[in-house]
Amino acid sequence: MKRSVKYYAGILILLPVAFVAVLGFKAADKFYTFKLHNAKDVKEFFKYTPDAVPFISAHRGGARKGYPENCIATFENTLSHVHSLLEMDPHYTKDSDIVVMHDATLDRTSNGTGKIADHTLKEVKSYKLKDVDGNLTNYQIPTLDEVLEWAKGKTILVMDMKELSMEARVKKVQEHKAYASTIIMAYTIADAQKCYKLDKNIVMEVMLNSVEKVKEFDNSGVPWQNVIVFVSQKPVTDPTVFNEIHKRGAMCMEGAAFSYDAAYTKGNISIEELNKDYKSIIAAGADVIEANLAIEAGTAIHDLQQAKMASSSKAKFF
């Protein structure tokens, strides 16, 4: 029996769809993920090696037009473009549940008002999030539990402190068995010591902004394999601190959120200048860029990633 051209064209269109359905993939599931299975993998991933692949940490998840801060849909949008850690912020509700939002108040990033701590989880869940332009979206405020479960097998969350104690944050990682998908921010050496005492498997993002602080950390009792070091929110012109941290086997992070990102958002620099600035962070010695504009940052260093990926011992994690 003769078949029309339309018939065969239809078959050709449907074949890729059928193939995708059989494999169980959906377009929305195509994320840039990290292949990490346990705490040992995470420690190896963050261990500095000269062939390390540079990557991004999305401050507050990488919010942009249509995508609010600290929102699972925003996390997914970021990962659909670039490899990235996802920094996020936990807060207690009135009934002691924990939600993910940067501010202690609801007003700036949702259509709720007042303190999160004055609202029950049910009330908080009834509000919708706003994007970076203040436009209301259909997205809910997620709970910490939802975010911790969502991240497994996809990325590494960076859990900030806000009003949660180190004990509370460690407990959440343990409860969700999220060792391969969550690290904890430690603002002081004492915080890092407390986390290590509570659970030696958890990796931390620790703040050390000088060679003196690096040397102080040497005597903390916390192994360097348990940390990635956040060095500065400002451009680092002297690479000495990066070199000292690298000699100890840890990776370094520098922030662009309040410097280059802010300058670009205000219209003070062009996208070409922004791209050069991101690359200058890596050239100075940082391994990770924390950025509000995570997609732009990841795109800017894509060629640097590809150049390293071909022969890097870290390629297996990407």
Rank of each mutant, 00 (worst) to 15 (best):
Ala9Ile: 15
Gly10Ser: 01
Ile13Tyr: 09
Pro16Leu: 02
Pro16Ser: 06
Val20Ile: 14
Val22Tyr: 14
Leu23Met: 11
Leu23Cys: 14
Ala27Asp: 15
Ala28Tyr: 13
Asp29Glu: 13
Tyr32Asp: 13
Phe34Gly: 08
Ala39Met: 02
Asp41Trp: 01
Val42Arg: 03
Lys43Gln: 12
Glu44Thr: 14
Phe46Thr: 09
Thr49Gln: 12
Pro50Leu: 03
Val53Arg: 00
Phe55Ile: 04
Phe55Tyr: 09
His59Lys: 04
Arg60His: 09
Gly61Met: 03
Ala63Phe: 04
Ala63Asn: 03
Pro68Cys: 08
Glu69Pro: 05
Asn70Gln: 01
Ile72Asn: 03
Glu76Asp: 07
Glu76Ile: 07
Leu79Asp: 00
Pro90Glu: 06
Pro90Ile: 04
Pro90Trp: 04
His91Pro: 06
Tyr92Asp: 04
Thr93His: 01
Lys94His: 06
Asp107Pro: 06
Arg108Asp: 03
Arg108Pro: 02
Asn111Phe: 10
Thr113His: 12
Thr120Cys: 00
Tyr127Thr: 12
Leu129Glu: 14
Leu129Phe: 10
Lys130Leu: 05
Lys130His: 08
Gly134Tyr: 05
Gly134Glu: 06
Gly134Asp: 06
Asn135Ser: 12
Leu144Thr: 09
Leu148Cys: 07
Trp150Cys: 00
Met159Val: 08
Lys162Trp: 07
Lys162Leu: 00
Glu163Asn: 11
Glu167Ala: 12
Ala168Val: 00
Val170Asn: 01
Lys171Pro: 10
Gln174Met: 10
His176Gly: 08
Ala180Pro: 04
Ser181Gln: 05
Ile184Met: 09
Ala186Lys: 08
Thr188Glu: 05
Ala190Thr: 13
Ala192Val: 08
Gln193Arg: 10
Tyr196Trp: 11
Leu198Pro: 03
Leu198Glu: 01
Asp199Gly: 00
Lys200Asp: 14
Met204Tyr: 08
Lys213Ile: 05
Glu216Ala: 13
Asn219Cys: 13
Asn219Thr: 15
Val222Cys: 11
Asn226His: 07
Ile228Phe: 13
Phe230Asn: 11
Ser232Val: 01
Thr237Tyr: 13
Asp238Thr: 01
Thr240Cys: 02
Val241His: 05
Phe242Gln: 06
Phe242Met: 06
Glu244Asp: 01
Gly249Phe: 02
Met251Arg: 12
Tyr260Ile: 13
Tyr260Arg: 14
Asp261Tyr: 01
Lys266Gln: 14
Gly267Trp: 00
Ser270Asp: 04
Glu272Gly: 14
Glu273Asp: 12
Gly285Val: 07
Gly285Ala: 03
Asp287Ala: 07
Glu290Trp: 10
Asn292Ala: 12
Leu293Ile: 11
Ile295Trp: 05
Glu296Val: 11
Thr299Ile: 15
Ala300Asp: 00
Asp303Cys: 08
Gln305Asp: 06
Gln306Glu: 13
Gln306Cys: 12
Lys308Phe: 10
Phe318Met: 11
